[in-house]
């Protein structure tokens, strides 16, 4: 464990809590992509199956359980409790365009051709693009609520901090996972445009709106 990984995990946790709080406090999931959230639940489910097969640490187990539970909690709020507020007209990104190629790639490019490893690889690849429906939704509506933009900033920062963690681990532990690093870089690059808008607008007290 190093400081980059720890702050990355905290940013990830913070993002999830921010999203749950936004939905709970405003009693609305308007502006949130249900498709991105469904894919995040799929990401956590397929990645953390090793909860059953391996014990790493109390921290690792606890965080994994929190991430799985919160992702399904978010789906419950979006699709059951506050279903009426779900903005499905703007959530039109086709999930199969991501899930099918990612599934194919995880069979072709992985560290080991075993069920758990393929599912882990699938989750790494899927996570890298799972935010696209959310970003697409913002580009369609042309704006995001401030709390939603804080959520996205925390969520994007998490993988950027993981990149620093991988640099650290490469130099100090000789650890290098090409699949995680490439997917993590792709994931972070997808946020760059959003990061720019967030810093130039939200940090100056304005709402996140897209240039016309």
């Amino acid at each position: 464990m190093n400081v980059f990984r720890l702050t990355g995990d905290i940013a990830h946790l913070l993002a999830i809590i921010l999203l749950l709080m936004k939905i709970w406090k405003t009693r609305s999931c308007a502006g949130v992509s249900g498709k991105s959230q469904m894919m995040f639940a799929l990401v956590f489910t397929t990645r953390y199956l090793d909860l059953i097969t391996n014990f790493i640490s109390l921290y690792n187990t606890t965080m994994k359980m929190i991430f799985i539970a919160s992702s399904y909690g978010t789906l419950y709020l979006m699709f059951l409790k506050f279903r009426a507020t779900y903005d499905s007209n703007h959530d039109t990104f086709r999930m199969e365009f991501l899930v099918v190629p990612v599934a194919g790639l995880s069979f072709l490019v992985n560290h080991d051709f075993s069920p758990l490893e393929i599912l882990w690889t699938f989750s790494i690849y899927l996570e890298s693009v799972a935010i696209l429906p959310q970003l697409f939704m913002i580009s369609k509506t042309g704006e995001a609520e401030t709390i939603t933009s804080h959520y996205l900033f925390a969520l994007g920062s998490y993988r950027a901090l993981y990149i620093l963690n991988w640099v650290y681990r490469f130099y100090f532990e000789g650890f290098f996972d090409l699949i995680a690093v490439v997917a993590g870089c792709v994931q972070t690059v997808l946020y760059c445009d959003f990061f720019y808008l967030y810093i130039t607008k939200v940090w100056k007290g304005k709402k996140l709106t897209l240039p016309a």
Binding site: I56, N60, E117, W120, F175
Partner: peptide, 10 residues
């Protein structure tokens, strides 16, 4: 250089 099959990262 190794990529571990035991995943300690989240």
């Amino acid at each position: 250089l190794r990529a571990s099959l035991i995943k300690d990262e989240l």
